[in-house]
Design a protein around this nucleic acid. Structure first.
Lengths: 235, 235
DNA sequence: CGCGGCTTTGATGTTCATCAAGTAAAGTGG
DNA sequence: CCACTTTACTTGATGAACATCAAAGCCGCG
């Protein structure tokens, strides 16, 4: 099956989008085209804010590629990171359906691309197409549960256990490699695991001393996976 | 509009159920009746487990009244409480839609009643009726976000702030009163806020000494709401 | 090249967990 | 109903875990 690129858009590939299967698989071709017409693809460069807490929700945002962090800033100014995640997850698009404004902020940790589709159109399609809605429920549920589980995992560990867990998270869930460049600062790790950045750094130093990791700035190599897993488990 | 109680059921009140508006408002009368036929109303007495982590999900459970805690037990045997909530929230029914087994456990803190409806019937109705599905999405989203927000609030506070926050939570969100009977043990509060029970108790004692609360066993009276709010905020 | 932000390390003090022992309360079986 | 057992609660003492503060080095950026 072939399709023609609309002349007024650089990319209009919903029909062939590799992410289509995640949620939009149950839409008819006609509806997919409507979405395609209405959508806007926005690129965010590393560090850019995608949306902020309190901002009015106008569209449903679907992360195509990149890496983002979902977070909240308290009155006192410090940041709490809720999750760091790749496209398959929905992230902030949970409260899209029951609130007027975003409750959390979202920003790009790597260059990212998001599809923005008017929220009313999505709601209309959900209402019209139960299969699509059931699909959406499935994806939203998974996302929420992953966030909740991540939190439970973190909160049951001590400092070293949390740092180990986060390193394993990046290695196993984000980069699929023993060697990777951390997408976040030490302070952001601290904000994710609710510890002070000084102690996160100290823990890195210990891991280095004990031959568990090698690190040079943001480049990390896990040299003793087993030990790291043990620390994560008992911590 | 009147309805007749089916002879083979003690209660079959879906049409007039006071909770209908929350999710089932968009179902036709015919579908409501199907649900009504299929559903089973189960009572749980205080302390009883409604479902456990790992159990196969057979039905969609809808809390009619009571109070429940959602929690998880780690390999080491200690409990992490995720949330404590009243009927309007869905609680465990998130992973109903994307997993075979429950990821968390649910138990009754007060005598509770749940409607159990076969999950396949619910899925069928969601698929058939987009309005119903959109409704469901709204409720599920709200529930998830409340859990996530609760967690963020707790994790940004210190011991005293967490205890104050939890007391205000019970007072303001669960019992709507300055005076109430705690539905949980000191240890359960500890499991909710990730602190040791000894320190939770110590904090209670301090609050009592400082004239912030009066407490006799599980009966709590908040005597200085303002001070408690200040502790919760700055904690 | 100089400024500001991130990182690192050490020193210090606070917060919190843990252990232990004792008390109250609540269920259990005779 | 009482003796018994168990579980929840309470308090103190101790040490470990962690935050905070401060100073110095590093790196990137204008």
């Amino acid at each position: 099956m072939s399709f023609v690129i609309a002349p007024h858009k650089k990319t209009c590939s919903c029909l062939s989008c590799e992410l289509r299967g995640l949620t939009f698989s149950s839409l008819s071709e006609k509806d997919i085209e409507r979405v395609c017409e209405a959508r806007e693809e926005i690129s965010y460069s590393k560090g850019e804010v995608i949306h902020e807490e309190g901002e009015i929700i106008r569209d449903f945002r679907y992360l195509k590629n990149g890496l983002v962090k979902l977070y909240r800033v308290s009155e006192s100014g410090d940041e709490q990171i809720i999750t760091i995640t790749r496209p398959k997850e929905f992230v902030s698009n949970m409260n899209v359906f029951h609130e007027e404004k975003y409750r959390f902020s979202l920003s790009a940790l790597e260059d990212s691309v998001a599809c923005c589709i008017n929220i009313d159109l999505i709601k209309e399609l959900l209402e019209k197409n139960g299969k699509f809605a059931l699909n959406m429920i499935t994806v939203l549920s998974r996302t929420s549960e992953n966030i909740i589980s991540l939190n439970l995992e973190i909160r049951k560990r001590n400092l070293a256990g949390r740092v180990a867990f986060v390193l394993l998270y990046f290695s196993g869930e984000i980069y699929y490699s023993r060697i990777f460049d951390l997408p976040v600062s030490r302070k952001e790790i601290a904000d994710l695991i609710s510890m002070s950045s000084a102690n996160v750094i100290r823990t890195f130093t210990e891991f280095r001393r004990d031959g568990i990791i090698q690190s040079n700035g943001r480049t990390i190599e896990i040299t003793d996976m087993h030990k790291l897993e043990v620390i994560s488990k008992r911590g």
